[in-house]
Amino acid sequence: MTDSIDRISLATRLRNNFLTGLIICAPMAITIYLTWTFIHWADSWVKPYLPDRYNPEAYLKFAVPGTGLLIAILFITLVGFLGRNLIGRSIVSYSENILNRMPLVRTVYKSTKQIFETVLKEQGNSFKKVGLIEFPRAGTWALVFVSTDAKGEIAAKLNANGEEMVAVFLAPTPVPTAGFLMFVPRSKLMLLDMTPEEGVKLLISAGLVTPEHKPNLADAMTAFADLPAEDEAVSVKTSKAR
């Protein structure tokens, strides 16, 4: 009887050790694999256009991974530096005028540029807040990322009744790369304290990885104000006794 219990205990410990090791190794392996794949993808795009005299692999007997990625970063940084001065802005403006005259290309260029300007703009407020809305019906809540206030024609049409509308992005689980753009009244949007990164983790894990909630001072004061009078008296007596 004791031997069987020992065998069961040993099997349980081995299983727990395996699961612990899997939790430690799997994220590291996936991260290394994705990083390595991205580096090779960048190298495959840049290295074919790199002259041999500037390619370190032409002088070395082994491959140097990451060379293409480093050159791409330096090139993009240089273009950004030139685009911030007068000559660079003139060149960019001239290039944009050429693209805007092409029927199909101008649509793709304008849409892509608008997306990148909205997402990467330093002063932008896009996707800096996470909230909850009742979806798909009342009583059930879905996690959304707050984009911006409704603007333009949409704001003129939807704000006609005096209710301010907000654009939110409803992402699916577990791959939040596609979803729905929705306009909801601000009063129907419940903002959360979690960051967008924590919201993405919550979505990808299907609710298994829940960020720790630390109530702010306003929430604590509200909870204290909602206490019954007897509970407040007990808390005061307890604090005095301490």
Rank of each mutant, 00 (worst) to 15 (best):
E134I: 00
L82I: 10
V146I: 11
I91D: 05
L86C: 02
I87E: 01
V108K: 07
A72T: 05
I76P: 09
T148D: 09
K151S: 09
A58P: 00
V168G: 04
G68D: 11
S111T: 13
L82C: 11
N55M: 05
V144Y: 04
S95C: 10
F75C: 09
F169D: 04
K61Y: 01
V79P: 08
I73F: 07
V146A: 05
K128Q: 15
T148G: 05
Y94G: 09
D149K: 15
A150Q: 13
I133K: 08
E164W: 01
Y54A: 15
T118G: 09
L50Y: 02
G162M: 02
K157I: 08
G68V: 11
R137C: 10
I87Y: 04
T148K: 07
N55G: 09
S147N: 15
A155P: 08
F75V: 08
R101T: 00
L158C: 05
I133S: 06
K157C: 02
E153H: 06
R101L: 02
T67S: 07
E134R: 01
F62C: 05
A167D: 12
I87K: 02
V119D: 01
K121V: 09
L78A: 15
L69I: 11
T112W: 07
I73V: 12
T107W: 07
S111D: 09
I91M: 13
A138G: 06
F81S: 14
A58K: 06
Y49V: 12
L158Q: 11
V92P: 00
A63Q: 11
T77F: 13
K129E: 15
N125P: 04
I73H: 05
V168L: 00
